[in-house]
């Protein structure tokens, strides 16, 4: 059964279908969460909140084919909420971040350093577009911003990351 069919069943209240959908998407949610908070504990908390929120509101989802986009939107919102709450409580300095974990691989450190230069919105857009291969139209839906804004965020983001924009893709 494909995701849209599963989503249709989940919307009409089938808990097993929902569970299957989550099993297929949980690693993705985790990675997205990790990109924001850079440690396991917080990432898992975000995953849990995302799945819970999705479960209790899945019946409100109107079009099953948008399940992925919808779930991504919840995950991004949960991650941003989490960061906001954490900011109120304690400010984590750079040395502290992610230090509970075994040392992440070098390339992952590079990734975080790179994304660290970007603000939250740009980070979200770059992550969804280039790591999750999400269409620009869907990113606009996730963030509730116009298509044109997504494009300019991508443009500016890549410039900041010093990525060669030339041949990569037309943002036309």
């Amino acid at each position: 059964m494909n995701q849209t069919e599963l989503a249709q069943r989940a919307i009409s209240g089938d808990e097993d279908s929902f569970t299957l959908l989550i099993q297929e998407n949980r690693e993705k949610i985790y990675r997205m969460a990790f990109t924001y908070v850079r440690n396991k504990e917080d990432s898992l908390e975000i995953v849990q909140e995302t799945v819970y929120r999705a479960f209790i509101s899945v019946h409100k989802l109107k079009q099953p084919q948008y399940f992925q986009t919808w779930l991504t939107k919840i995950a991004v919102n949960c991650a941003l909420d989490h960061i906001r709450k954490a900011k109120k409580v304690v400010y984590m300095d750079k040395e502290h971040e992610g230090s509970y974990e075994q040392k992440p691989r070098e390339d992952v450190i590079d990734l975080h350093d790179a994304l660290g230069q970007l603000d939250e919105k740009s980070r979200t857009v770059i992550m969804l577009r280039y790591f999750e291969d999400m269409p620009i139209k869907d990113i606009a839906d996730v963030l509730d911003i116009p298509l044109s804004s997504v494009k300019s965020i991508i443009y500016r983001g890549l410039e900041k990351l010093k990525v060669n924009i030339g041949e990569r893709e037309s943002l036309g």
């Binding site: 990109t35 590079d110 990734l111 790179a114 890549l158």
Partner: peptide
């Protein structure tokens, strides 16, 4: 872009 490719790889290596 090569750099972007590396980042993507790193992302999926999380």
């Amino acid at each position: 872009d090569k750099k972007l490719d590396d980042y993507k790889q790193a992302y999926h290596d999380i």
